[in-house]
Computed example of a mutant assay.
Amino acid sequence: MILTVTPNPALDLTWHVDQLRIGDTHRADAGAVRAGGKGLNVARVAHAEGAVVRAITTAGGRSGEEFAEELGRSGVPHSLVRVAQDTRRSIAIVDEALGDTTIVNERGLNPSDQEWADLLAAVVDALPSARVLVISGSLPPGAPDGFLPLLIAVAKDAGVPVIVDTSGPALLRAAAAGASVLKPNRAELAEATGITDPVDGARALLARGAELVLLSLGAAGMLAVTASELVHARLDEPLAGNPTGAGDAAVAACAVLYAEGERDPELILRRAAAWSAAAVLMPLAGDISPQWPTLAAQLRVSRPDPDSVRKDLS
Protein backbone atom coordinates (compact mmCIF):
# COMPACT_ATOMS: atom_id res chain seq x y z
CA MET A 1 0.00 0.00 0.00
CA ILE A 2 1.07 3.56 -0.73
CA LEU A 3 0.32 5.73 2.30
CA THR A 4 0.16 9.47 1.67
CA VAL A 5 0.07 12.28 4.22
CA THR A 6 -1.07 15.78 3.31
CA PRO A 7 -0.44 18.07 6.31
CA ASN A 8 -1.89 21.20 4.66
CA PRO A 9 -4.69 20.15 2.29
CA ALA A 10 -6.72 22.54 0.17
CA LEU A 11 -10.08 22.78 -1.49
CA ASP A 12 -8.93 23.27 -5.09
CA LEU A 13 -10.95 25.64 -7.27
CA THR A 14 -10.13 25.79 -10.99
CA TRP A 15 -11.50 28.22 -13.57
CA HIS A 16 -10.75 28.41 -17.30
CA VAL A 17 -10.85 31.84 -18.97
CA ASP A 18 -10.31 32.74 -22.61
CA GLN A 19 -7.48 35.11 -21.72
CA LEU A 20 -6.33 36.38 -18.34
CA ARG A 21 -5.96 40.16 -18.29
CA ILE A 22 -4.64 41.73 -15.10
CA GLY A 23 -7.06 44.22 -13.59
CA ASP A 24 -9.93 43.19 -15.89
CA THR A 25 -13.23 41.39 -15.29
CA HIS A 26 -13.54 37.86 -16.64
CA ARG A 27 -16.41 35.46 -17.25
CA ALA A 28 -16.03 31.73 -16.91
CA ASP A 29 -18.12 28.61 -16.77
CA ALA A 30 -18.68 27.02 -13.39
CA GLY A 31 -15.30 26.07 -11.96
CA ALA A 32 -14.18 22.62 -10.91
CA VAL A 33 -14.00 21.89 -7.18
CA ARG A 34 -11.77 19.13 -5.89
CA ALA A 35 -10.27 17.99 -2.59
CA GLY A 36 -6.63 18.78 -3.16
CA GLY A 37 -3.21 19.21 -1.71
CA LYS A 38 -0.12 17.52 -3.06
CA GLY A 39 -0.44 14.25 -1.15
CA LEU A 40 -4.03 13.81 -2.25
CA ASN A 41 -3.03 14.43 -5.87
CA VAL A 42 -0.40 11.71 -5.47
CA ALA A 43 -2.99 9.32 -4.07
CA ARG A 44 -5.47 10.09 -6.87
CA VAL A 45 -2.93 9.39 -9.61
CA ALA A 46 -1.60 6.20 -8.01
CA HIS A 47 -5.14 4.96 -7.31
CA ALA A 48 -6.25 5.63 -10.89
CA GLU A 49 -3.24 3.66 -12.15
CA GLY A 50 -4.23 0.63 -10.11
CA ALA A 51 -2.10 0.99 -6.98
CA VAL A 52 -3.45 0.33 -3.49
CA VAL A 53 -3.43 3.62 -1.60
CA ARG A 54 -4.62 5.32 1.56
CA ALA A 55 -4.60 9.09 1.87
CA ILE A 56 -4.45 10.67 5.32
CA THR A 57 -5.21 14.35 5.74
CA THR A 58 -7.21 16.87 7.76
CA ALA A 59 -10.50 18.67 7.16
CA GLY A 60 -12.16 21.49 9.04
CA GLY A 61 -14.86 24.15 8.85
CA ARG A 62 -17.34 24.79 6.05
CA SER A 63 -14.72 24.40 3.33
CA GLY A 64 -13.66 21.19 5.00
CA GLU A 65 -17.17 19.78 4.67
CA GLU A 66 -17.12 20.40 0.92
CA PHE A 67 -13.60 18.98 0.83
CA ALA A 68 -14.70 15.80 2.65
CA GLU A 69 -17.77 15.33 0.43
CA GLU A 70 -15.75 15.56 -2.79
CA LEU A 71 -13.04 13.26 -1.47
CA GLY A 72 -15.69 10.73 -0.55
CA ARG A 73 -17.11 10.84 -4.07
CA SER A 74 -13.64 10.35 -5.57
CA GLY A 75 -13.38 6.74 -4.44
CA VAL A 76 -9.82 7.24 -3.15
CA PRO A 77 -9.42 5.31 0.15
CA HIS A 78 -8.72 7.84 2.87
CA SER A 79 -8.76 8.75 6.55
CA LEU A 80 -9.73 12.24 7.68
CA VAL A 81 -8.57 13.87 10.89
CA ARG A 82 -11.07 16.53 11.90
CA VAL A 83 -9.65 19.93 12.85
CA ALA A 84 -11.27 23.13 14.09
CA GLN A 85 -9.75 25.53 11.55
CA ASP A 86 -11.18 25.91 8.04
CA THR A 87 -9.50 23.91 5.29
CA ARG A 88 -7.64 26.37 3.08
CA ARG A 89 -8.48 27.02 -0.56
CA SER A 90 -6.31 27.00 -3.67
CA ILE A 91 -7.42 28.92 -6.77
CA ALA A 92 -6.11 28.06 -10.26
CA ILE A 93 -7.00 30.26 -13.25
CA VAL A 94 -6.17 28.66 -16.60
CA ASP A 95 -5.50 31.06 -19.48
CA GLU A 96 -6.73 29.20 -22.57
CA ALA A 97 -5.03 31.58 -24.99
CA LEU A 98 -1.54 31.18 -23.53
CA GLY A 99 -1.89 27.74 -22.00
CA ASP A 100 -0.64 29.16 -18.71
CA THR A 101 -2.04 28.75 -15.22
CA THR A 102 -2.06 31.36 -12.44
CA ILE A 103 -2.35 29.96 -8.92
CA VAL A 104 -3.25 31.61 -5.61
CA ASN A 105 -2.72 29.37 -2.57
CA GLU A 106 -4.03 30.28 0.85
CA ARG A 107 -1.36 29.54 3.44
CA GLY A 108 -3.54 27.49 5.76
CA LEU A 109 -3.99 27.60 9.52
CA ASN A 110 -2.02 25.64 12.09
CA PRO A 111 -3.84 22.74 13.79
CA SER A 112 -3.74 22.43 17.57
CA ASP A 113 -1.21 20.21 19.33
CA GLN A 114 -3.90 17.59 19.87
CA GLU A 115 -4.87 17.68 16.19
CA TRP A 116 -1.23 17.17 15.16
CA ALA A 117 -1.11 14.22 17.58
CA ASP A 118 -4.28 12.80 16.01
CA LEU A 119 -2.73 13.08 12.54
CA LEU A 120 0.42 11.30 13.72
CA ALA A 121 -1.69 8.56 15.34
CA ALA A 122 -3.58 8.00 12.09
CA VAL A 123 -0.28 7.53 10.24
CA VAL A 124 1.10 5.16 12.88
CA ASP A 125 -2.08 3.05 12.72
CA ALA A 126 -1.79 2.72 8.91
CA LEU A 127 1.98 2.11 8.68
CA PRO A 128 1.91 -1.68 9.22
CA SER A 129 0.17 -2.08 5.85
CA ALA A 130 2.33 0.45 3.99
CA ARG A 131 5.10 -0.30 1.49
CA VAL A 132 6.03 3.38 1.13
CA LEU A 133 5.07 6.62 2.90
CA VAL A 134 4.63 9.83 0.91
CA ILE A 135 4.63 13.16 2.77
CA SER A 136 3.70 15.82 0.30
CA GLY A 137 2.96 19.52 0.30
CA SER A 138 3.55 22.54 2.46
CA LEU A 139 3.16 22.78 6.21
CA PRO A 140 0.85 25.47 7.58
CA PRO A 141 2.50 28.51 9.21
CA GLY A 142 3.36 27.73 12.82
CA ALA A 143 3.56 23.97 12.29
CA PRO A 144 5.93 22.27 14.74
CA ASP A 145 9.43 21.91 13.25
CA GLY A 146 9.70 18.38 14.57
CA PHE A 147 6.56 16.97 12.97
CA LEU A 148 8.04 16.07 9.59
CA PRO A 149 11.23 14.48 11.03
CA LEU A 150 9.05 12.57 13.49
CA LEU A 151 6.91 11.12 10.68
CA ILE A 152 10.05 10.09 8.80
CA ALA A 153 11.57 8.51 11.90
CA VAL A 154 8.42 6.54 12.68
CA ALA A 155 8.29 5.21 9.12
CA LYS A 156 11.98 4.31 9.08
CA ASP A 157 11.62 2.48 12.38
CA ALA A 158 8.85 0.45 10.70
CA GLY A 159 11.10 -0.29 7.72
CA VAL A 160 9.01 1.87 5.36
CA PRO A 161 10.83 4.13 2.85
CA VAL A 162 9.73 7.77 2.76
CA ILE A 163 9.24 10.10 -0.20
CA VAL A 164 8.94 13.81 0.64
CA ASP A 165 7.84 16.67 -1.60
CA THR A 166 7.98 19.93 0.32
CA SER A 167 9.87 23.22 0.34
CA GLY A 168 11.78 25.70 2.49
CA PRO A 169 13.38 24.62 5.79
CA ALA A 170 11.12 21.54 5.84
CA LEU A 171 13.00 20.21 2.81
CA LEU A 172 16.29 20.43 4.70
CA ARG A 173 14.77 18.81 7.77
CA ALA A 174 13.42 15.96 5.63
CA ALA A 175 16.88 15.35 4.17
CA ALA A 176 18.52 15.38 7.60
CA ALA A 177 15.89 12.97 8.92
CA GLY A 178 16.86 10.47 6.22
CA ALA A 179 14.02 10.63 3.71
CA SER A 180 14.62 8.09 0.95
CA VAL A 181 13.53 10.40 -1.88
CA LEU A 182 13.13 14.17 -2.11
CA LYS A 183 11.26 15.80 -5.01
CA PRO A 184 11.83 19.58 -5.13
CA ASN A 185 11.63 21.78 -8.19
CA ARG A 186 14.57 23.96 -9.15
CA ALA A 187 13.31 27.10 -7.38
CA GLU A 188 12.49 25.19 -4.18
CA LEU A 189 15.93 23.58 -4.18
CA ALA A 190 17.73 26.90 -4.57
CA GLU A 191 15.58 28.56 -1.90
CA ALA A 192 16.15 25.78 0.63
CA THR A 193 19.86 25.21 0.08
CA GLY A 194 20.99 28.66 -1.06
CA ILE A 195 22.74 26.91 -3.98
CA THR A 196 21.71 28.02 -7.47
CA ASP A 197 23.48 25.18 -9.29
CA PRO A 198 20.92 22.33 -9.49
CA VAL A 199 23.39 19.46 -9.34
CA ASP A 200 25.30 20.92 -6.40
CA GLY A 201 22.00 21.73 -4.66
CA ALA A 202 20.77 18.16 -5.08
CA ARG A 203 24.05 16.81 -3.80
CA ALA A 204 23.75 19.06 -0.75
CA LEU A 205 20.50 17.26 0.09
CA LEU A 206 22.19 13.89 -0.42
CA ALA A 207 24.97 14.96 1.94
CA ARG A 208 22.36 15.68 4.60
CA GLY A 209 20.96 12.15 4.40
CA ALA A 210 18.65 11.66 1.39
CA GLU A 211 19.23 8.75 -1.01
CA LEU A 212 17.66 10.08 -4.24
CA VAL A 213 16.70 13.56 -5.40
CA LEU A 214 14.17 13.88 -8.22
CA LEU A 215 14.53 17.46 -9.42
CA SER A 216 11.81 19.01 -11.58
CA LEU A 217 13.18 21.43 -14.17
CA GLY A 218 9.96 22.51 -15.88
CA ALA A 219 10.28 22.51 -19.67
CA ALA A 220 13.89 21.30 -19.29
CA GLY A 221 12.70 17.97 -17.90
CA MET A 222 13.80 16.21 -14.73
CA LEU A 223 16.99 15.04 -13.06
CA ALA A 224 17.58 11.99 -10.88
CA VAL A 225 20.58 12.47 -8.62
CA THR A 226 22.13 9.91 -6.28
CA ALA A 227 25.55 9.73 -4.68
CA SER A 228 26.89 7.91 -7.74
CA GLU A 229 24.49 8.69 -10.61
CA LEU A 230 23.14 11.66 -12.55
CA VAL A 231 20.37 11.00 -15.07
CA HIS A 232 18.42 13.53 -17.15
CA ALA A 233 15.10 13.02 -18.95
CA ARG A 234 13.23 15.47 -21.14
CA LEU A 235 10.89 15.79 -24.09
CA ASP A 236 12.07 17.54 -27.25
CA GLU A 237 9.22 20.04 -27.04
CA PRO A 238 7.47 21.40 -23.91
CA LEU A 239 3.77 20.63 -23.49
CA ALA A 240 1.07 23.28 -23.17
CA GLY A 241 -1.51 22.75 -20.44
CA ASN A 242 -2.00 22.90 -16.68
CA PRO A 243 1.27 22.09 -14.85
CA THR A 244 -0.14 22.31 -11.31
CA GLY A 245 -0.22 18.54 -10.74
CA ALA A 246 2.90 17.62 -12.70
CA GLY A 247 5.19 17.28 -9.70
CA ASP A 248 2.57 15.27 -7.82
CA ALA A 249 2.28 12.84 -10.72
CA ALA A 250 6.06 12.41 -10.64
CA VAL A 251 5.89 11.58 -6.93
CA ALA A 252 3.06 9.11 -7.61
CA ALA A 253 5.20 7.35 -10.22
CA CYS A 254 8.10 7.11 -7.79
CA ALA A 255 5.83 5.84 -5.02
CA VAL A 256 4.30 3.13 -7.21
CA LEU A 257 7.74 1.84 -8.22
CA TYR A 258 9.11 2.07 -4.66
CA ALA A 259 6.11 0.09 -3.39
CA GLU A 260 7.00 -2.57 -5.98
CA GLY A 261 10.59 -2.68 -4.71
CA GLU A 262 12.16 -0.78 -7.62
CA ARG A 263 15.16 1.39 -6.76
CA ASP A 264 16.89 1.98 -10.12
CA PRO A 265 17.09 5.79 -10.54
CA GLU A 266 16.83 5.69 -14.32
CA LEU A 267 13.70 3.54 -14.32
CA ILE A 268 12.15 5.75 -11.65
CA LEU A 269 13.08 8.89 -13.59
CA ARG A 270 11.56 7.58 -16.83
CA ARG A 271 8.23 6.84 -15.18
CA ALA A 272 8.26 10.05 -13.14
CA ALA A 273 9.01 12.24 -16.16
CA ALA A 274 6.36 10.51 -18.27
CA TRP A 275 3.64 10.80 -15.62
CA SER A 276 4.63 14.40 -14.94
CA ALA A 277 4.26 15.27 -18.63
CA ALA A 278 0.97 13.37 -18.82
CA ALA A 279 -0.40 15.44 -15.94
CA VAL A 280 0.18 18.67 -17.89
CA LEU A 281 -2.26 17.43 -20.53
CA MET A 282 -5.12 17.14 -18.02
CA PRO A 283 -7.32 20.01 -16.85
CA LEU A 284 -7.14 19.16 -13.14
CA ALA A 285 -4.32 18.23 -10.78
CA GLY A 286 -4.54 14.62 -9.66
CA ASP A 287 -5.10 13.15 -13.14
CA ILE A 288 -2.74 11.95 -15.85
CA SER A 289 -3.38 11.36 -19.53
CA PRO A 290 -3.57 7.76 -20.76
CA GLN A 291 -1.01 8.88 -23.34
CA TRP A 292 1.77 8.54 -20.77
CA PRO A 293 3.32 5.42 -22.37
CA THR A 294 3.67 7.35 -25.64
CA LEU A 295 5.29 10.22 -23.78
CA ALA A 296 7.62 7.79 -22.02
CA ALA A 297 8.75 6.48 -25.40
CA GLN A 298 9.45 10.04 -26.57
CA LEU A 299 11.72 10.92 -23.64
CA ARG A 300 15.38 11.63 -24.30
CA VAL A 301 17.26 10.08 -21.38
CA SER A 302 20.96 10.72 -20.87
CA ARG A 303 23.67 10.47 -18.25
CA PRO A 304 25.34 13.86 -18.66
CA ASP A 305 28.32 15.18 -16.80
CA PRO A 306 27.48 17.94 -14.28
CA ASP A 307 29.14 20.66 -16.35
CA SER A 308 26.90 19.99 -19.36
CA VAL A 309 23.82 20.15 -17.12
CA ARG A 310 24.97 23.48 -15.74
CA LYS A 311 25.56 24.79 -19.26
CA ASP A 312 22.18 23.61 -20.56
CA LEU A 313 20.33 25.17 -17.63
CA SER A 314 22.26 28.45 -17.44
Results as ranks from 00 to 15, higher is better:
residue 37 G to S: 03
residue 259 A to S: 15
residue 247 G to F: 07
residue 16 H to C: 12
residue 108 G to E: 04
residue 31 G to V: 06
residue 110 N to D: 09
residue 132 V to S: 00
residue 260 E to V: 04
residue 170 A to S: 15
residue 314 S to E: 11
residue 50 G to F: 14
residue 28 A to Y: 06
residue 169 P to H: 10
residue 311 K to S: 14
residue 224 A to H: 02
residue 178 G to I: 05
residue 221 G to S: 05
residue 279 A to V: 01
residue 71 L to V: 02
residue 65 E to K: 00
residue 289 S to A: 13
residue 28 A to N: 08
residue 182 L to H: 10
residue 42 V to W: 01
residue 214 L to H: 10
residue 16 H to I: 09
residue 174 A to D: 06
residue 237 E to T: 13
residue 191 E to A: 15
residue 34 R to C: 10
residue 8 N to P: 11
residue 270 R to I: 11
residue 239 L to S: 08
residue 215 L to M: 06
residue 197 D to W: 05
residue 17 V to M: 06
residue 44 R to C: 07
residue 276 S to Q: 08
residue 61 G to V: 02
residue 4 T to D: 00
residue 145 D to R: 13
residue 58 T to K: 01
residue 74 S to P: 03
residue 113 D to W: 10
residue 249 A to W: 05
residue 241 G to E: 02
residue 149 P to L: 08
residue 45 V to N: 01
residue 173 R to A: 14
residue 110 N to H: 07
residue 112 S to C: 14
residue 37 G to N: 04
residue 227 A to K: 13
residue 275 W to L: 15
residue 207 A to T: 11
residue 201 G to I: 05
residue 124 V to E: 07
residue 165 D to Q: 12
residue 242 N to G: 08
residue 202 A to S: 14
residue 43 A to K: 00
residue 42 V to D: 02
residue 26 H to P: 06
residue 194 G to Q: 12
residue 255 A to Q: 07
residue 162 V to K: 01
residue 227 A to I: 03
residue 38 K to I: 07
residue 234 R to T: 04
residue 35 A to Y: 00
residue 220 A to S: 12
residue 23 G to M: 13
residue 313 L to F: 14
residue 192 A to L: 10
residue 203 R to P: 02
residue 208 R to A: 13
residue 262 E to A: 09
residue 164 V to N: 07
residue 202 A to L: 08
residue 161 P to Y: 14
residue 245 G to M: 10
residue 3 L to T: 05
residue 71 L to G: 03
residue 2 I to P: 08
residue 45 V to P: 01
residue 20 L to R: 10
residue 295 L to P: 12
residue 279 A to G: 07
residue 178 G to A: 03
residue 216 S to F: 04
residue 301 V to Q: 04
residue 225 V to D: 02
residue 222 M to F: 10
residue 265 P to L: 04
residue 64 G to P: 00
residue 33 V to L: 12
residue 6 T to P: 02
residue 123 V to M: 05
residue 119 L to E: 00
residue 31 G to I: 13
residue 27 R to N: 11
residue 308 S to G: 11
residue 186 R to P: 01
residue 147 F to D: 07
residue 307 D to Y: 08
residue 307 D to T: 13
residue 163 I to M: 06
residue 203 R to T: 07
residue 46 A to E: 08
residue 293 P to K: 07
residue 196 T to N: 11
residue 178 G to F: 02
residue 22 I to V: 15
residue 60 G to K: 00
residue 173 R to H: 08
residue 310 R to E: 12
residue 139 L to K: 05
residue 16 H to L: 11
residue 141 P to K: 13
residue 282 M to D: 11
residue 207 A to M: 03
residue 72 G to V: 01
residue 23 G to E: 10
residue 115 E to F: 04
residue 93 I to S: 04
residue 167 S to H: 07
residue 294 T to F: 13
residue 298 Q to T: 10
residue 121 A to P: 06
residue 115 E to S: 01
residue 214 L to E: 04
residue 58 T to G: 01
residue 207 A to R: 15
residue 209 G to F: 02
residue 53 V to F: 01
residue 20 L to N: 06
residue 79 S to N: 06
residue 269 L to N: 06
residue 52 V to H: 15
